[in-house]
């Protein structure tokens, strides 16, 4: 269905990046081995964690979980590895691992530091190309300011066309939709959308043209952001009875977009 494809486009846009080639192996085989071992352990921990995190439903439970993470096993060792191999692809990988950990345990200082190093020392690395996806999708609200800053730096420093498209699209939606960026964010988003229209007017902006993407994103920013009156709809319910969203004026309404798995 064309329209469906169109609107899932900005997520699809980033998928090719996931398959980006792994960087060439760095010189120091011992460091590589050490990183691989840390990553093996990290994968184990993360598997346990994502399971636990699903069940943590309150602020207190999440904080407790974060405090229980074996931070000392990973953070000092990965930081030391990254510093000892500064500028190499191995260091880039270590910083991405540190970035992931910072998300997991909501360590804001580590999050800022990892992104700062990645976008200043590794901006052209394939590791950074892969990172763009994580900066918006599934990103918790507290990461928005750092995430936007990282996307701006990657946009300025990495000229790969896939990375450029991903950064333009994600940054526009992030600063346009997230209310913490306010009016300035919406102005920045509009400037990015104008750029997308201009640079990718009738050419492939992944599954659509730049013009189509910009139109969809403008609608989203204008109609669906917090503070706007929700667009009305008329649809049938499970019994075939048609109803309108506006039938529910005067009531607090939760719209839950979902489906059986």
């Amino acid at each position: 269905m064309r329209i469906r494809f169109f609107l899932t486009g900005s997520a699809l846009l980033l998928l090719p990046l996931l398959g980006a080639a792994r960087p060439a192996a760095p010189d120091d085989p011992q460091a590589v081995k050490q990183l691989q071992e840390l990553e093996r352990r990290l994968t184990e921990e993360r598997a346990v964690w994502s399971e636990l995190k699903q069940h943590a439903q309150t602020e207190a439970e999440r904080a407790e979980l974060a405090a229980a993470f074996p931070r000392d096993e990973f953070v000092p060792a990965l930081t030391a590895l990254a510093n000892a191999n500064k500028g190499t692809e191995l260091a880039a990988r270590a910083w991405v691992d540190l970035f992931r950990i910072s998300r997991l345990i909501e360590d804001r200082a580590l999050h800022a530091q990892a992104l700062q190093r990645l976008t200043s020392e590794h901006v052209t690395s394939p590791e950074v190309a892969n990172l763009t996806l994580m900066l918006v999708y599934g990103a918790p609200p507290w990461t928005a300011p750092d995430g936007a800053e990282a996307l701006r730096k990657i946009l300025a420093g990495n000229k790969d066309v896939g990375v450029q498209q991903a950064c333009l699209a994600e940054l526009a939606l992030l600063v346009g939709m997230d209310e913490s960026f306010g009016e300035a964010g919406r102005a920045e988003a509009e400037a990015l959308l104008v750029r997308i229209e201009k640079e990718y007017s009738d050419v492939d902006f992944n599954a659509m043209t730049g013009k189509q993407f910009a139109a969809g994103a403008r609608h989203e920013i204008q109609a669906l952001r917090v503070g706007q009156v929700a667009p009305d709809f008329e649809l049938a319910d499970q019994d075939g009875v048609r109803f309108k969203l506006s039938d529910y004026r005067g009531r607090v309404v939760v719209l839950d977009f979902w489906g059986f798995v």
């Binding site: 899932t8 669906l224 952001r225 503070g227 706007q228 929700a230 607090v252 939760v254 719209l255 839950d256």
Partner: peptide, 16 residues
């Protein structure tokens, strides 16, 4: 909609 679940909470005036 880009994925599930996705939620919107509206007040009594229909404002997101």
């Amino acid at each position: 909609v880009r994925g599930f679940p996705q939620f919107y909470v509206l007040d009594e005036q229909g404002v997101i």
